[in-house]
Design a binder for these strands. Structure first.
Lengths: 227, 227
DNA sequence: ACCTGAACACCGTTCAAGT
DNA sequence: ACCTGAACACCGTTCAAGT
């Protein structure tokens, strides 16, 4: 019986991408390396270079996938306010689904085809509005940046929380307290009050996301009425 | 004559920070390394660890300096809309002054004292408004993220432009054209039109910044009237 | 066509040893 | 107290060599 036949690992671009998502999910983007990715696939690191030009192009492919999924999950119906809110929520949910995808979008060249299609969809929604042509761009960028920043902040906060948890404290809250005490009262007055009211627990919540989203949509509405 | 006396390099925390800014300005944050920073100061890399715990804490100190300067450059006068606009512009200008400072703010723990003071100032400005207490936080974060994202995008665009320039083309524009052609017409319709009207040259301009800023301030105004 | 081993030029950081 | 040399455990990437 030939046993040796199947010894060779069976790698494809697809299996590399799948492994990359798994690795991002387990160790995060900072610790992500070509060698660890190769380990995940039981191959040697240089083998990866037969399928991808370099690490950046793997990240690019991952970011692409997210953009593609965000696009298909969006249904464009109803008034533009609803369309915009819905699309932004779809993007957020997609970013939330894939680990470190917000970071990937940050590191990706913004000239990527699928990423451009996302921006195009945003522009298409606000295109009928009575707004200076060159301003529409600023508005679309503003909304997209909001969604990405929101996911980034959430990730960052979770990271701080986890790293502090290991030291037997109650997470980021302790570090926060210490920072506040280093500054004079007047410079932290408001933030301190909000902290004491427990408002920090809402960081990264759906409620907070919707508030910011409403803010942006309202702002666009207002600009459109002025123009 | 004792010549050997002054052989030893005279390093201080301050001189390290100064050298770090110089290095960030010349090679950017991606290429920044402890060894190169040491070279800049004519010392060996391990010497840096006598003054700073690690690379991250140097970045932290740099980010701090930016936050401090943004704070002092802000004068809080007039109606809240003006205060907010002025403060956001001050932050943007400060970020613009120090190389890679937007990236530094992204990589910095958000629990930094001076960074918190910046958020506190934002919160203080919108504090008198009739808005749900927990929403104020979302609004402040939204505005701050907008300013940071704007500077990040500008940096990224300049980087793409420079790297393409080396290849004898007209910069990012060519890469952009190619990306557009990879997608079906309907998915790039609007963005293509805007490109052909030369609207892309406004990316990162003051005009674009002010449009987004006005959008956010208008949005807050609206939320305040509803509440 | 696909995969590996060895190597190159880098990192951040530690630490015993020097002055 | 301050600085260095040597070393450790990593990187991303290349390339001749294997199957």
């Amino acid at each position: 019986m030939r046993v040796k036949r199947e010894q060779r690992p069976q790698i494809t671009e697809e299996s590399i991408i799948t492994a990359a998502w798994a690795l991002l999910g387990s160790i995060g983007i900072e610790e992500f390396s070509m060698r660890k990715l190769a380990d995940e696939l039981n191959i040697q690191a240089p083998s990866l270079y037969w399928y991808f030009k370099n690490k950046q192009s793997i990240f690019q492919a991952l970011a692409n996938e997210v953009a593609k999924e965000a696009l298909v999950s969006a249904t464009l119906e109803g008034p533009w306010q609803e369309q915009l809110t819905h699309f932004a929520t779809c993007i957020k949910n997609t970013l939330n689904k894939y680990p470190c995808s917000a970071q990937l979008w940050m590191r990706t060249v913004p000239m990527d085809p699928d990423y451009l299609a996302v921006i195009n969809t945003l522009l298409k929604i606000i295109d009928p509005l009575l707004i200076e042509e060159s301003d529409k761009f600023a508005l679309a960028a503003c909304l997209l940046n909001y969604v990405i920043s929101f996911e980034l902040d959430k990730y960052e906060q979770r990271k701080v929380d986890l790293s502090m948890l290991g030291e037997g404290q109650e997470g980021a809250q302790v570090l926060f307290r210490q920072s506040l005490e280093q500054l004079p009262e007047e410079k932290t007055q408001v933030i301190k009050r909000m902290y004491e009211n427990g408002l920090f627990k809402e960081l990264g919540s759906d409620r907070m996301f919707n508030t910011g989203l409403r803010l942006i949509v309202s702002g666009i509405e207002r600009l459109a009425h002025e123009g």
